[in-house]
């Protein structure tokens, strides 16, 4: 069973990496979603694979046999990660949608004219400004 789990997680990760290397936002969003699955599953299985022993205490709950239950900590961790992951996906979707509506295409790369920085003021320029204000 361990081989199946590891290979499935690896396959999801490979697909995720391939998709985030694409040029359009939607593919990258898909890739990130895939990566969320893979990483959540990975974190979850760090508690090792246990079948039929959910961390729900049986009986009165007073005396607990620890070996009867799977590790609850990775589960708690992943539970919030799933919800936060959704929040993150939503923000990214919104950003890509905004970029598409504003810019007219859904390319992920930064356009050249966005990258251009304002020219630097040289020391002479600064001096000139100072003289003008003085």
């Amino acid at each position: 069973m361990e081989i199946l789990v590891a290979s499935a997680i690896g396959a999801m990760m490979a697909a995720a990496i391939y998709l985030i290397l694409r040029l359009r936002t939607f593919a990258v969003i898909l890739g990130m979603t895939m990566m969320t699955y893979a990483i959540n599953a990975f974190l979850f299985v760090s508690g090792r694979l246990v079948v039929n022993r959910p961390p729900i205490l049986q009986g009165s709950g007073e005396a607990v046999d620890v070996t009867m239950y799977t590790d609850p900590i990775p589960q708690a961790l992943v539970l919030t990660a799933i919800v936060i992951g959704f929040g993150m996906t939503a923000v990214v979707v919104m950003m890509s949608l905004g970029a598409f509506i504003e810019g007219g295409d859904d390319h992920i790369n930064m356009p050249q004219d966005d990258r251009e920085m304002p020219p630097l003021k040289t020391v002479e320029d600064t001096k000139k400004i100072e003289e003008e204000t003085a």
Binding site: E2, I3, V5, A6, S7, I9, G10, A11, M12, M13, A14, A15, A16, I17, Y18, L21, A38, F42, V45, S46, R48, L49
Partner: peptide, 22 residues
Amino acid sequence: WDAFIATLGGVAFGALTYVILR
């Protein structure tokens, strides 16, 4: 090339998972 990187990453991640599981 992208597929190569992706495969590399996937295999590494899967292998890591397997080692941890075992």
